[in-house]
Amino acid sequence: MSEAVDPGVAATSEPKEEKPCVQCLVPEIMTAWNSARGACEFVPDEKGREECRKELEEIAKDVKSIKKGSEVIYKAIKSSSNPAAFIQAQIEFAKTHNAANTEAILKWADEMEKAGKEIPEDIAKIVKFYRIQAGSQI
Rank of each mutant, 00 (worst) to 15 (best):
S13V: 12
N98A: 11
Q137Y: 07
W33T: 02
E55S: 14
E51S: 13
K117Y: 08
E103N: 10
T31R: 06
I138K: 15
K19I: 14
K68D: 01
I91C: 02
I119S: 10
T96K: 14
K128G: 06
K75M: 08
A89Y: 01
A84Q: 15
F42N: 01
M30D: 13
N98L: 13
R49P: 06
S80I: 01
K64H: 11
G38K: 11
G38Q: 08
Q137H: 10
D6S: 13
G8L: 09
D110Y: 12
D122F: 10
A94N: 03
C40A: 06
D110L: 11
N101S: 07
V22E: 04
A4H: 10
I138Q: 15
Q23T: 12
L56G: 01
P15N: 04
A115G: 12
Q133W: 03
R37M: 15
T102P: 01
C40Y: 05
D122S: 12
A104P: 03
V9D: 03
K128S: 13
A60I: 08
G69C: 02
G69F: 01
A99F: 08
K47V: 06
R37F: 14
E18P: 06
W108P: 08
K117I: 10
N82Q: 14
K78W: 06
K107Q: 14
A10H: 12
A10M: 14
I59W: 01
A100Y: 07
G38P: 06
I132T: 02
Q88Y: 02
E57Y: 11
K128A: 09
I126H: 09
I91V: 07
N34R: 13
E121C: 04
D45N: 11
T31H: 05
A10N: 14
N98K: 12
K128C: 06
D45P: 05
E17C: 08
E41P: 02
R49A: 12
I29Y: 01
A11E: 08
P44G: 04
N101E: 08
V127A: 04
E18W: 08
K16Y: 14
Q88V: 05
I132P: 00
A60R: 15
Q90A: 08
C40T: 04
T12H: 04
K54F: 04
Q133L: 03
Y74L: 11
D6K: 09
D122G: 06
E14K: 15
K117D: 06
R131I: 07
D110V: 14
F93C: 05
F42W: 05
I29Q: 00
L106R: 05
K78Q: 13
K68V: 00
I29G: 00
K47H: 02
W33G: 02
I66E: 00
A84K: 15
E121T: 09
A100K: 14
